[in-house]
Design a protein around this nucleic acid. Sequence first.
DNA 1: AATTTATTGCAACTTTGTCGCATTAACAAA
DNA 2: TTTGTTAATGCGACAAAGTTGCAATAAATT
Lengths: 129, 129
Amino acid sequence: MGVIRITKSVKALLNAFAEQEVALSTVALVEQFQDHMNRSTVYRILERLEDEGILHSFTGSDGLTWYALGNKNLLSGKANLDTHPHFQCKDCGKTECLPMSVSIPDVSKHTVESVSLLLVGQCSDCASV
Amino acid sequence: MGVIRITKSVKALLNAFAEQEVALSTVALVEQFQDHMNRSTVYRILERLEDEGILHSFTGSDGLTWYALGNKNLLSGKANLDTHPHFQCKDCGKTECLPMSVSIPDVSKHTVESVSLLLVGQCSDCASV
DNA sequence: AATTTATTGCAACTTTGTCGCATTAACAAA
DNA sequence: TTTGTTAATGCGACAAAGTTGCAATAAATT
Ligand SMILES: [Mn+2]
Ligand SMILES: [Mn+2]
Ligand SMILES: [Zn+2]
Ligand SMILES: [Zn+2]
C-alpha cells in the first residue's frame, strides 16, 4: 500500500461519504464534483480509497459502480462485513449496505471466493407514500 | 407481449443457448455473430427473448450482461428458479445458473422485489489444474 | 401473390470508464 | 521556510458497452 496524500479532492470525497451513510455511485459523484475536480480524478481517488480499505464497492442494479465507507472505518467490529448484502430502492435510488452476513449456498463443486448479493425493492420512505 | 417473429437471427441465437447449458455474455454473442448479424440486432433479440421469458439475464462480475435460458423452458418444474444464484469462474470465465433457491436476508424495513446473488470463484475444471 | 408490420442494418450517438503525459501540489527533509 | 521528490491532477484522446432513429427488408397472414 503506497503513500496516500490527503488532497483537497480526497477530503471532498471523503466528506461526501461522511455526511450520509448511504452508498454513492460513481456517476453521482462525478456529477456532484464536476466543477471542482476532473472526472478521472474522481475515479482514481475512489479506486485508491478502496485499495486502502476505506471504501468498498459493488455493482448496482443499474450496472453502475457504487461506493460506501468500508471495513476499516464505519463497520469495524461487526461480524464478517467483508461480504454483506446491499439494498437498492428502485423508486428513489437510495442504496445502502445491509449490516448482516450472507449465507452462501452450498456449491461443493466450486470454490467460492467472493459473493455479491443485491436486494432491489422499495425502501421504507418510498413504501409509505 | 407482442408477436415474436422467428427470424434467422433469432434461431441462430437460440441455437447458441441450446448447445451449451451455460450463460453467455452479450459481448461474447456479439462477437460470435458479428459476421451474421448486426450488434444492435443481438441486443434487441436478447431483450425480446427475455421479455418473453425464454431467456433471463444477470450482471456478471465483469459488469457485463449475461443471458441464459430461462424459466419457461429449461428450468421449468424446479422450485422457485425465478431467483436463483449464478456462479462465475474467475479463471475461465465460465458462468452458469445454480439450480437452487436463494435465502433472502430479513430486511423488515424494506420491501424486497428481486434478489441477485453472484458467486465468483474457481470452477471444478480450473481447480483441478 | 399481395399486404402488413415486426425486424434488421446502418450510422450516429451516449455513457461509463481508462490512459498517457505534462503540470501541480502534498509532504518530508533540510 | 525553502527546497526536493513524486504522488496526484487536469486534460484530451480513446475504448467498450449499449442505445436510437430511420429507411430497407423479410416474416407472417390473408
Ligand atoms: Mn457495502
Ligand atoms: Mn440464471
Ligand atoms: Zn426509496
Ligand atoms: Zn473455470
